[in-house]
Amino acid sequence: MNTLPQQLANGLLLGSMYGLIAIGYTMVYGIVQLINFAHGEIFMTGAFGALTVYAYILPHGTSMWAAVPLMLIGGAIVAVLVAVGAERFAYRPLRQAPRLAPLITAIGLSLALQEVVRNFYPGADKARSFPSLDTTHDLGAVTIKDADIFLIIAAIVCMSSLAYFVRKSRTGRAMQATAQDPDTAQLMGIDTNRIIVIAFAIGGLFAAVAAVSYGLKYGNVDYRMGFLMGLKAFTAAVLGGIGNIYGAMLGGVVLGIAETLASAYINNIPGMQQLGGQSWANVWAFCLLILVLLLRPQGLLGERVADRA
């Protein structure tokens, strides 16, 4: 169970989840240079949207084959609505404001979303159980669950359709143009507001997919799940080069693997015996973030975005 291939697989799975969330950070950032701090909470609302479909809408005993797609739809609707609503009512009025204003708004939004769920979603102040796909498959060196298969397929489908969308569709090209130069893009007749909304919506959609995978994999969701996942996904986005969609996924995978390996093996290093295990995994993830910012601030696939001091 604790073999290296197994650890790598675990890291890859965790990382794809980070990557899916990181897409939301990176797309929004690429277009409006805004770090949407509340994105972690959008992920969380996606999970609760999906849970609502399962627990309150579908009849008991619905087969998972039918339930999962419907949960995806429910989660996506909630997450996209929250994301687009945040853009429309919280961020858009501040687009010309000093930099600090949208950041503080994002903090407020993040707190408010957490608290809304905690206060008003039945039973959400503690972890709520989520239908999980626990059937395991032994593939020789590694053992994976159904939820893992779902996650991997979802990540691949999402990434390839996003790549196709950005590359081939009219809207995708308009997005690239807006990312390059919003003013010129607007002069060329691109409705930049629409593009920004689409970026937020795609972020929400991917976050919802990640949220459903999270629920299926871990079997419970809570109102705070977005905070850490969001932070790590942001780390992944920075790691890969913020603004770059492939970078986000790559960063996610690298972060996931690094984190898994660190928690599995770091206690084998003399002098660090007590710093291994799951409880220190987050610490190592952030150390990686700081290390990356120090050594390669533009990220693995990014261009230079650093200010010259």
């Binding site: 770090i35 780390t235 610490v283 601030p297």
Partner: peptide, 24 residues
């Protein structure tokens, strides 16, 4: 490491640091 970069990075790194502190 962070103050050389855009302000947004500082925000997120300090957020991460706060979390590290609590975990640690």
């Amino acid at each position: 490491p962070t103050l050389r970069l855009r302000g947004d990075y500082l925000a997120i790194v300090t957020l991460g640091f706060g979390e590290i502190f609590r975990i640690a």
